[in-house]
Amino acid sequence: MTSADLDDCPERVLLDRLERYYDAVPRHGARAEDFGPLTLFVREGQGWPFYARPARGWSGAVSAAAVDRVRARQRALGVPESFEWIAETTPLLRAAIEDSGLVVHEHPLMVLDPGAPVPTADELPVGSSVRIIGPDDPALASALAVPHLAFAEPGTGIGSAGVDELAEAVRTRAEDGSVDRAVARIGAGLTAVAAALESGTVLCAGQHQPVGAVSEIVGVGTLPTARRRGLGLAVTAALVADARSRGVETVFLSAGDDDVARIYARLGFRRIATALIAEPTE
């Protein structure tokens, strides 16, 4: 199917495409453990741990006992007891997840309309330079650190973390191996990073992760003190442009909430489903 066909593509076809993507992405750096209706992805080596999700093609009932078995395995491995799935394709999973005692968070799942004339980053009046960050770019460590500071202060309002906190976060990244892992993924074509910079300081950054003709935009975050300037939109536009230059036909993302979804809608993203993330209560 070409990108031109996607304008009239039934949503169930799009959702199946995303399900195949979700199943494929972790396999580049994780092994899949079979738990019947559920699959647990276990990362090989260091890096952010993966999650459990429905087995590819599974849409039937799942018992709380099956969820409990996966959670026991996650505890044994010392990884977060997290699950991710699309509500509309596995509608019966949520009850089992909640019966197991996990809390479910909802996020708008959005796909970019193929014909949307997404502006280039230069066409958006943000007053910052926006570029794709290569593996040798000195801004890479900062581009990896900024989203973590952003997600530590969720929402769209101006926050407290600024350049001092960014400098400390960059020092942490230099010690935990995350920059080396990002360099390897960029070199392998598994990740692309974009950032908005001002006077050499990264103020916003994000990534997309292509697999064939599909890519997900992930981790777009703005340094909390630099919010409300349109930087997230500019970085997202740069990521879309990069994805399209690689031949990607389906670009999608999960918005943090409805307010964030409205921002992405300005670039032509439309909501097609609900992404669910489950985790224990704090």
Rank of each mutant, 00 (worst) to 15 (best):
L6M: 09
D8C: 11
C9W: 10
C9T: 07
R12V: 13
D16R: 15
R17I: 14
R17Q: 15
L18H: 01
E19V: 03
R20H: 02
V25Q: 05
P26F: 05
A30V: 07
A30T: 10
A32M: 07
D34R: 09
G36T: 01
P37S: 05
F41N: 01
P49C: 01
Y51F: 15
Y51T: 15
A52F: 02
A55P: 10
G57M: 01
G57S: 02
S59T: 14
S59H: 10
S63K: 12
V67L: 14
D68L: 15
D68F: 14
V70I: 08
A76P: 02
G78M: 01
V79D: 01
S82E: 09
F83V: 00
E84H: 14
W85V: 03
I86L: 14
I86K: 04
A87T: 08
E88L: 08
T90S: 14
R94C: 06
R94H: 06
A95Y: 04
A96E: 00
D99E: 11
G101L: 02
L102V: 02
V104F: 06
H105D: 09
H107I: 04
P108L: 04
L109Q: 06
M110R: 08
V111W: 01
D113C: 13
D113W: 13
P117Y: 14
V118T: 07
P119W: 12
T120H: 14
T120M: 12
A121G: 14
V126I: 15
V126F: 13
G127V: 11
S128R: 09
S129N: 13
I132A: 10
I133E: 00
G134E: 03
P138N: 09
L140E: 01
A141Y: 00
A141N: 00
A141I: 01
A141W: 00
L144N: 03
V146T: 04
V146H: 03
P147D: 05
P147A: 04
L149V: 01
A152H: 05
P154W: 06
P154C: 04
P154Q: 04
T156F: 06
S160E: 09
E165K: 09
R171K: 13
D176S: 03
S178I: 09
V179A: 06
A184N: 10
G187V: 04
G189V: 01
A195I: 00
E198N: 03
S199W: 03
V202A: 02
A205Q: 03
V211W: 06
S215D: 05
G221A: 07
L223D: 03
R229V: 02
G230R: 13
G232F: 07
A234Q: 06
T236R: 06
D242W: 08
G247Y: 10
T250A: 10
V251S: 12
D257Y: 02
D259G: 13
A261W: 08
I263K: 04
Y264F: 13
Y264P: 03
A265N: 11
A265E: 12
A265Q: 12
L267G: 03
G268W: 06
R270I: 09
I272R: 08
I272G: 10
T274A: 07
T274C: 10
I277P: 10
I277F: 12
A278H: 00
P280Y: 03
